[in-house]
Simulated assay, not measured.
Amino acid sequence: MCPFVTVHCGFRLIGCYHVSLRASQRKRIIQSQLSFVRSNSGGFSEKILFYHKLKTKGVASAVSEQQPVDPDPTSPQHSLPNAFYRFSRPHTVIGTTLSIVSVSLLAVQKLSDFSRLFFIGVFEAIVAAFFMNIYIVGLNQLSDIEINKVNKPYLPLASGEYSVKTGIIIVSLFAFMSFWLGWIVGSWPIFWALFISFLLETAYSINIPMLRWKRFALVAAMCILAVRAIIVQIAFYLHIQTFVYGRLAVFPKPVIFATGFMSFFSVVIALFKDIPDIVGDKIFGIQSFTVRLGQKRVFWICILLLEVANGVAILVGASSPSLWSRYITFYAEYLLIPLVR
C-alpha cells in the first residue's frame, strides 16, 4: 500500500491545515482548493467551514492512501511504460479480462468446443474491450484532473507527467482502435457492447451540460451496473454463442445467474471505489454515496451486499442438478484460502 504522510501546521484559511507532502504535490493541492473556493461565490462560508473541519484528518487521510509523486523526472517511476501502466488503471483491465473469460466459458458445452476458433474469439473480445477500457479510464482522468490532484496525485495527468493534449490523443486513439477492431471482427455482440459502453461511460465522465452523471450517486451506480453486470455478461456470451459457435441466442440458467451475481458485485464496485476519494469528492461537489452516508456506513453496506451475493451463489450451486457442480461450488471457498496473504 501507499506510505502515510505526516501532518504539520501551515496553510491558513480561517483555520489552518497543511499536509507535509513533497513540494510539487502540496502546491497542486493548495492551488486546486483555492481556485475552487474562489470560483464558487455561493456557500463560501460553508466551504471555509468544511476546510476548517478537514484541517488535518480529512486531507491527510485522503493523501495518505495515495502513492506520492516522484518529482525527479529521471526516476524510473516516471518512465513512459510506468506512466501508461498507471494511466491504464490495470485493476480495471484485469477485471474486464477475467469477466470476459469466465462468461465465454459459459458457452462451452463439450470439450471439442475448446477449439482454435474459441480462443481466437475470446482473444478478439479481450483486445477490443481492453482498447475501450483505456478510453474509459483515460476520459475519466481527463475529466477529473483537479479532483485527482487530491485523491490520486500519482496518476499521470494529475501529476503532470502527461499533458492534457497527450491524454486526449491516447483516449481518442484507443477509442478508434476499439471500434475498428470490433468492426473488422464482424461480431455484432462485440460492436454493440463497445458502442453502449462508450455512450454510458462518456456520459458518466465528460463534463458538459446534462452529462457528467458521476455527480449523481444513483445514476453513477446504474452506469457501472449496466456496463459491468449486463453488457459485459450478455454481449460477450452472445459473441461466443452466436458468432463463434453459430448457435441460437439462448440464455441458460448459468448466464442468468452470472448476470444477477455481477449486478450485486457491480453495485459494490460503484460504492467501494468512492470510499477513499471522499475528500476530493467533497471539495468538488461529487455527491457520491460515501459523501452522503459516510465511509463506514458505505463500507458495511458493501460487505452486506457481498455476503448476500455469495450466499445466493452457494444456494444456487447446492441446488444444481450436476453433482460435480454442487461439490465444487460448496467447497470453492477453500480454493481462496491459499490466496490470502
Rank of each mutant, 00 (worst) to 15 (best):
I286K: 05
S319K: 12
A332L: 10
I224H: 06
T329S: 15
Q31C: 10
V5H: 13
G280H: 05
N140Q: 05
I337W: 11
V268P: 03
N310C: 13
I231Q: 06
P71W: 05
W183K: 11
L271S: 08
G160Q: 07
S39Y: 10
A60Y: 03
I30T: 02
L293H: 14
L323R: 11
S172R: 00
F84P: 02
S64V: 01
S24W: 01
S41M: 11
P156H: 02
N148D: 15
C16A: 12
F4Y: 13
I14P: 04
V37Q: 02
C16W: 07
S319T: 12
C9W: 06
I196D: 00
L199C: 13
F330L: 15
L218P: 00
R341E: 09
F179Y: 08
L181H: 03
H52P: 02
V244P: 01
L157M: 06
L105Q: 05
Y162A: 03
G15K: 09
R215S: 10
L271M: 09
S61H: 02
G58P: 04
F179C: 02
L155G: 04
L21T: 11
G186M: 06
S143W: 00
A217M: 02
F50M: 11
E146H: 14
H52L: 06
F123Q: 03
D113T: 08
S320C: 10
I196H: 00
A332W: 10
I147Q: 08
V227A: 09
L111C: 05
S322L: 13
F179K: 00
V93E: 08
Q77F: 15
G294P: 06
T329D: 11
K47W: 01
G42M: 09
K149F: 07
S39M: 08
I303R: 13
V232H: 07
S35W: 12
A158K: 06
T92E: 07
Y331I: 10
M210F: 15
L304Q: 12
P76E: 13
P209H: 12
V185H: 06
Y327P: 05
G42L: 08
R26Y: 14
C2S: 14
P81A: 04
I147R: 02
S187L: 04
